[in-house]
Amino acid sequence: MKVGIIMGSKSDLPVMQDAADICKAFGVDFEITVVSAHRTPDRMFHYAKEAASRGIKVIIAGAGGAAHLPGMVASITTVPVIGVPVKSSNSIDGWDSILSILQMPNGIPVATVALNAAKNAGLLAVQILSTAKPELAEKMQAYKDDLRQKVEETAAEMEG
């Protein structure tokens, strides 16, 4: 079981690294590369078409600006795609990326996380994989328990 992490440009790496870090933390195998929908459409087509046969179970696709990468990849593969809108240098405050990924036509679903939220994309990918891997589900439960505990500790400190 492997997660594919792709992005439209190397400039997206500071954001997309969070997804890779989550995969590492959970012991999930992943690959990471640049695949541009606009500058390398043949590479994008090949990546999406071959993903399932190479063992990719979830694709996390980050893109800024027009942000066509997640949707185009989703149109080619049967592998679930999680889109990460990236606030790029030519972005309209990130809204162009968010709406480009979020507003997919019926029949081509892309799960969409918040702007620059590759960490959440990584967590969602782990949750998807955990439906078939009980040991991942246990790690995810421990992660969520830790989050809950930290909030409870903070609340106790504030209250008194």
Rank of each mutant, 00 (worst) to 15 (best):
E50L: 06
L147I: 13
A66I: 06
H38E: 10
T40K: 11
M104A: 11
N106G: 14
K24F: 02
Q127E: 15
S36R: 03
V126M: 08
A121H: 08
A67V: 06
T40P: 00
Q149V: 10
A121M: 11
Q103H: 14
C23A: 15
V110C: 08
M72W: 03
R39A: 05
N106Y: 14
D96G: 15
Q103S: 10
I108T: 15
L123T: 07
Q103M: 15
D42P: 03
T33M: 11
V126P: 04
I32M: 15
S88N: 14
N90D: 13
G62M: 02
A132D: 15
G64S: 07
L124F: 12
K24E: 14
G122Q: 13
H38G: 08
E138Q: 14
E50M: 07
I32S: 07
G107T: 11
Y47W: 15
K119H: 11
A61Q: 07
S91K: 04
S89P: 00
P134A: 12
L147D: 13
G94V: 00
H38I: 08
V28L: 02
A137V: 05
L123H: 05
R39T: 04
I60Y: 09
S75Y: 05
P80D: 08
D145K: 11
L147K: 05
N106T: 11
Q149A: 15
A118I: 10
G65M: 10
G107E: 08
V110N: 04
G65L: 10
V28P: 07
H38N: 12
A67G: 07
N120K: 00
V81A: 05
A51M: 04
N90K: 08
P41A: 03
I32K: 14
I32C: 12
A37T: 04
K49I: 01
V86D: 00
I60V: 15
K119P: 03
V79A: 01
E31M: 13
G27N: 07
L99G: 06
V86R: 01
I101S: 08
A51W: 00
V35D: 02
A48T: 01
A111N: 04
I82R: 00
F30R: 02
A66L: 09
T33L: 11
V34L: 04
Y143L: 01
R54W: 00
M44D: 00
V126G: 04
L69V: 01
P134D: 08
S36D: 04
K144D: 09
F30P: 04
A117E: 12
V81R: 05
V126W: 04
R43I: 14
N120L: 00
I98G: 01
P134M: 10
G83Y: 02
A67Q: 07
H38R: 10
A67F: 03
Y143K: 10
T131C: 15
R43A: 14
K119T: 13
A114I: 00
G65A: 10
D42Y: 09
A61S: 07
I101G: 06
V79Q: 04
R148C: 06
G65V: 03
P85C: 07
S88G: 15
K87Q: 11
I60M: 04
P105A: 09
S130V: 09
D93E: 13
N90F: 11
F30N: 03
I98M: 04
P70V: 06
P109T: 07
A74F: 13
V84N: 05
F26H: 13
L147M: 15
V34Y: 01
G107A: 08
A66H: 02
I76V: 15
K119D: 14
